[in-house]
Design a protein around this nucleic acid. Structure first.
Length: 256
DNA sequence: CTACGGATGCCCT
DNA sequence: GGGCATCCGTAGA
């Protein structure tokens, strides 16, 4: 029943090469389904993958798979939008000026460590620590791959019977939406080492060519001032429906 | 499509 | 006490 419903979603929204075989059930199937994409597809990303400066990591995380175990079932989403936070020199970073508090401690931990913080009293954002003191990558959007029904259940928070049903591309198209969909909370995931955890980790997906990466300004940091608010430190996959905010000007130079 | 107000509570000063 | 790397519903073009 659940699989049947998932498949229907996939059929309705079959835009990603990742979905070519619609393998939704097990790790084994996943590996088989993308064996033509990349030799390492479906393998856990190791420490060395994360040990890069945040701008590089932010781009290389595009196309990779975030995996979360919820009540014994696996939820998977492909990362389609990220932001780089540079550390002590970045006015918009929680670690600006080398600021270090109990909240942002994970930003200073080993690359691959998750930094989950609460925002606006009711939401969370997920970051991954990168190379460099106090720098990290914010995960802004996912394209759901597996566990759609669980994601819908997670996103029912704050929604009523009057609310319009969510479309698939609305499940994870925002930093706090994806945390709701994948049950990522500070209590459960903050400071977790994603290279060793059995509850949340990353797997290699497809590699996104530079020509498919749109570079744009970051979202929601106007208070950092124009100069830093406008730095091109947000990255997303061109034409992907699951991106939270598109930048038409940045996309104008792309074809198709 | 964009604009805006309200929700809601943690964290730092 | 004020700010916040957000989301949602409504209003209007």
């Amino acid at each position: 029943m659940r699989i049947e419903k998932n498949l229907r979603y996939i059929m309705d929204d079959n835009v990603s090469p990742y979905f070519s075989n619609a393998g939704l059930v097990s790790n084994t199937d996943m590996n088989q389904s993308c064996s033509n994409e990349a030799p390492s597809c479906g393998k856990r990303l190791e420490k060395s993958f994360f040990d890069k400066k945040s701008t590089t990591l932010a781009k290389e995380l595009l196309g990779q798979i975030l995996v979360r175990k919820v009540d014994g079932s696996l939820l998977r989403g492909m990362i389609v939008e990220t932001e780089s936070y540079l550390g002590e020199n970045d006015v918009a970073s929680h670690s600006y000026n080398g600021k270090r508090t109990p909240r942002n401690e994970p930003m200073y931990m080993a690359p691959g460590t998750l930094y989950v913080y609460s925002i606006y009293g009711m939401y969370y954002c997920l970051n991954i620590s990168s190379q460099g003191e106090g720098s990290c990558v914010l995960i802004r959007s996912l394209e759901p791959i597996e566990g759609i029904d669980e994601m819908i259940a997670g996103r029912s928070f704050k929604r009523t019977s009057k609310s319009r049903p969510l479309k698939e591309h609305e499940l994870c198209n925002g930093p706090s939406k994806l945390c709701l969909a994948l049950n990522i909370t500070k209590d459960l995931c903050n400071k977790v080492d994603a290279t060793t955890s059995d509850e949340i980790w990353l797997e290699s997906g497809r590699s996104v060519p530079e020509s498919d990466i749109v570079t744009a300004k970051r979202i929601g940091i106007e208070s950092a001032g124009h100069e830093w608010a406008n730095k091109p430190l947000r990255y997303y996959i061109f034409k992907n429906k699951h991106v939270s905010v598109k930048d038409k000007k940045a996309e104008a130079s792309y074809c198709n």
